[in-house]
Structure formats: structure tokens, C-alpha cells
Computed example of a mutant assay.
Amino acid sequence: MLGTALVAAGCSSEPEGGKPLPSTTLSAPTDQPTTDEAPTPTPTPQPTPKETSLTAVGYKKALANVEMNLTRGVQRVMNAPTMAAFDQARAELAGSIARQRQELAKINGPQSLGSGHTKVLGAFDAYPDHVTTNLAASGETKTGCGLPKAGAVRLYQAKTGIRTSVVQLTQAVNKSVGKGTNFGLRMTPPALKPPPQMTGRGTNGQIIQRAGSRGAGTLQIKNNGSADVVVVVATSVPRQPQVSIYVRHGSDATLRGVRGSYWVFFKSGTAWDGVSRQFTEDCSFSKYDDRFDGKFDWTITLSPVIGGNASTSDVDPF
């Protein structure tokens, strides 16, 4: 009994003074850190929902909505009163077309359409390049004859360029979708009427200029060519004429009161500007090589004729 008590005292965990010692728990080392949290379960893959294709009717409704959203922008372009207003409206329309293309890209065309939906998107993608091509003429500040281009002409050419681009877009969409599609019917504006500067013509037989005294000579003119012509009678240079007369193609006119010996110059073209007394497009400038004797009456035919005896040469613009 005494020995047992001593063993128990020696194994006691209480130090002197009666206070208990801190206990220590030892764990066996492991390869992985331990945690009290439950393991995160691996998520089960969910099937991706299949995108539904529109029906043919639904697709046409989507195109009709696109057209409705673009129509007002086209109208703003066509109603622009100045080139500055046109440029602003044109930029807004380009942005609208790009946004509508993005909206169309979010939908699936009907299966029966095949690759048609992709071609529709391609038609919208081609619009900017068409605009660049179709606005080239309006960006030029000179006419084909080198004269300053009227603002009304530039604006007409610019609006016509946008209209052409819209027509190209709508035609490409309709071709991609197939028969029964009328995309663009409301969006396409009517063709514009050219301004007077582009369609101007003088009156047949109209005297354009006259200077100095009159003589007794007569010059009969037959214009059998395809263009209107201004015939200039000048003692020396065409910019200082005795008299000049407008002769429409397919018409005749007689110039009276010619004096002395003279040269005959003629210029032809289209888009006659009565203010500057010049053709503004498709110009050509020529003269007869031989001088005319004012003692006689002459007849000239402004087109190549069999048996003709008068040669001509090109000259500088006048």
C-alpha cells in the first residue's frame, strides 16, 4: 500500500504549489493539411440551353423593326438644307445602321434561310464602303470643266449618294432573304430632282455676247452633233468675241451682223451656266483652222460630214 501511494505521487501532473500544468496534445504528422470544413462538392455541368431560331414570319418582323428604326434617319439626311447639316445627319445614320446590325446579329434566322442571315449581316457591313464610293462626286469642289462647283450641286450629289447606298443595302437584304421580302420599301426615299445648275441649257439661237459694230456677214450654223454648242466669232482671241450664239444639238441657227475677217471657235458640253456663260460638264473647245472672209456668207456643219472641207483643232478653254 505504501509503495503504491509513492508511485501515484510521482506521476502526479500537479507542480509544487498545487497549480495544474498546461496539457499538450500531440498529433501525428500528415501529408495534407487538416480542416474542419466540409469539402466543396464539384458542380454538376448543366446543359446549355439551345437558342431558338425565328420563324420566317418572325424574321421578317425583325427586319421590319430595323427598317422602322432607320427610316427617320434616312429622312433627316434627305431633308438636310446644307452640307454641314447633311454631314451630321449622315454620321447619325451610319451609327444607327451599325447598331441595327448588332441587334440583328443577336438573333438566329430561320433554318429554312440557311446562310441568308449571314448574308444579311454582310449587306449591313458593306454599307460604309458603298457610302465612301457614292459620295466621291460630292466631295469634289470643281466641275468636270474645272469651274467651282455650286453648293446646290454638291448637296444633290451627296444626297443621291446616300440614297444609292440605302438602295444597295435594301436590295442586298432582299436578295439574301428571298422572294416575298420588301425590306426598305418605306425607308428608300424618292429620287431627287437635279438642280438647275445641272440641267441648264441655253435657248437655241440665243446671243450670248456681242461687242463692237455690226457688219454685213452671215454665218449659218447646223449642229448635227450630240451636244449643245456655243459658236464664237472673234477677230483674234475667243475671250474677246465679236459675237457668240447658243445652238442646241439637232438644231440650226443663223448669226448675222458679222464684220471683217474672223475666226470661228466653238465650245460644247452639258450643264450650261448662264451666269458664267460656260458649260460646266463634258466640255470641249475647238476652232476651225482656216480664217473666214467676212465678204461672204458661210454655212458650217458642226459634225463630221462626207466631203467636208474644213478642218478643226482643239484649243485651250475659253
Rank of each mutant, 00 (worst) to 15 (best):
G180W: 08
R186G: 15
G151Y: 13
T181F: 05
N182Q: 02
T164G: 12
Q171C: 00
R186Y: 15
N182C: 00
K149M: 04
C145V: 11
A152V: 11
T141W: 08
I162C: 01
Q171F: 14
K142Y: 03
T170R: 00
T143E: 13
K149I: 03
G144S: 02
G144I: 07
T181L: 13
G180N: 04
A158C: 04
M187W: 08
S165M: 06
R186L: 11
A152R: 07
N174W: 14
T188Q: 10
M187N: 09
G146V: 14
I162K: 01
F183A: 06
L185A: 01
G184I: 12
A150W: 15
G180S: 10
V166F: 12
F183I: 11
K179G: 14
G146I: 15
N182P: 00
T170L: 15
Q171T: 08
A172C: 02
V167A: 06
R154Q: 13
A152D: 14
P148L: 13
R163F: 05
A150Y: 02
Q168G: 05
G144M: 14
T141Q: 02
K179Y: 09
S176T: 07
S165D: 03
S165G: 03
T143P: 06
T170C: 09
S165R: 03
Q171R: 04
M187L: 05
G161Q: 02
I162S: 13
R154C: 01
R154N: 09
T143R: 08
V177E: 10
N182F: 11
Q171G: 09
V166M: 07
K179I: 11
C145M: 08
L169Y: 09
Q157G: 00
Q157Y: 09
L155W: 10
I162F: 15
G161P: 01
L155P: 08
N174L: 06
T181K: 01
N174E: 11
C145F: 07
V173F: 15
A152L: 01
A158T: 02
T181N: 01
S165Y: 02
A172S: 11
M187K: 03
K175D: 15
R186K: 01
R154W: 08
N182V: 12
T143G: 01
A158I: 06
S176A: 05
L155R: 06
A152T: 02
R163D: 08
M187R: 04
R154T: 14
A172R: 15
T188A: 02
Y156W: 11
G180V: 10
V177F: 05
T188P: 02
C145H: 04
S165T: 14
T170E: 13
T160Y: 10
K159M: 09
C145T: 05
G180K: 01
G146K: 09
A158N: 12
S176C: 10
G184H: 13
T164H: 07
T170I: 06
P148K: 06
R186N: 10
L147A: 09
L185K: 13
V177H: 08
L147I: 11
S165Q: 13
R186W: 02
S176H: 10
C145G: 10
Q168I: 04
G146N: 05
G151L: 12
G178Y: 04
Q168P: 03
L155G: 13
A152C: 14
R186Q: 06
V173P: 02
M187C: 02
G184S: 08
K175P: 00
A150H: 14
C145I: 03
